[in-house]
Computed example of a mutant assay.
Amino acid sequence: MAHVSHQLLDAITTAVTGLPTTGDRVRQSRLYAHGRGPALNIRLGERRNTATLGNALVNAEQDIFIDIAVAGTAESIDDQLLQIESEIHQALMADYSLGLPFVLDLNPQGLSEPDLEQAEKPKAVATSAWRYVIRHRLTDLES
């Protein structure tokens, strides 16, 4: 069995692959490396233990970040980002547990301000942040 955070990352990647706007341009990466956009990069954030239950289980919060990369006219960038954010929201909230028995809850954290690159065809990246509440065994991280 894989680490709970890796299982979660894989499930999110599957859930957002095939969205109407980004299609299969989805990667698990800390670096934007797509040849064309719009595209998504999914990456792990901090995992914080929040409670130990009866010396057997641990509740934790796992942050996941989805970087949304778009390009187009300056006037269309915000519309593209908001459309993709909506598609991600629908995909992840359809089943907040993503079929994973250790996921207890999901708290969407919002969308960052876009980081805009000035060019002939402007590009922007904004980050959609998600906080998952998970539970794993005290003795390992593969539950």
Rank of each mutant, 00 (worst) to 15 (best):
L100R: 03
K121V: 15
R131G: 01
D78A: 11
E75W: 11
G18R: 09
L92V: 15
E46K: 14
S143L: 07
L141A: 09
A119Y: 12
Y132L: 03
D10A: 13
N41E: 09
A126M: 03
H6G: 01
A94E: 13
V58G: 04
Q62K: 02
T73S: 15
D140T: 10
I66E: 02
D10S: 07
T139W: 10
R47D: 11
I12C: 01
R137P: 02
Q90W: 08
L138S: 05
A15C: 04
R30I: 07
L81I: 15
P20D: 09
Y32N: 06
R25M: 10
A51S: 13
V133R: 11
R47V: 10
D79E: 14
T50M: 05
V103Q: 02
H3V: 05
R131S: 15
T22Y: 10
P114T: 13
H6V: 15
I64K: 02
G54D: 12
L98H: 08
Q80T: 03
Q28G: 04
V133C: 00
S128D: 13
S5I: 05
E113A: 13
A124G: 06
R36P: 00
F102M: 11
A51V: 04
A71P: 00
E61W: 04
H136A: 02
H3F: 10
V133P: 00
Q83G: 08
N107S: 12
Y132H: 08
Y96V: 05
T14N: 04
I84V: 14
G18V: 12
L106P: 00
G72D: 09
R135D: 05
Y32D: 00
D140R: 07
M93K: 13
R27V: 08
G23Y: 13
V16E: 05
S128G: 02
Q62R: 01
H3L: 07
T21D: 09
G37Q: 11
S112Q: 08
P20H: 06
G37P: 00
A60C: 12
E61P: 00
D95M: 07
Q7F: 03
D79P: 00
V133G: 01
P122F: 09
T52S: 03
I84G: 03
W130F: 13
I66N: 01
E113V: 14
L40C: 06
D140C: 02
R48K: 14
I77Y: 08
V16I: 15
I68F: 12
P114E: 12
M1F: 08
S143Y: 05
E75G: 02
A11T: 02
R30W: 11
H89Q: 12
T50S: 10
A51F: 08
L40H: 03
S5N: 11
G23A: 13
S86C: 01
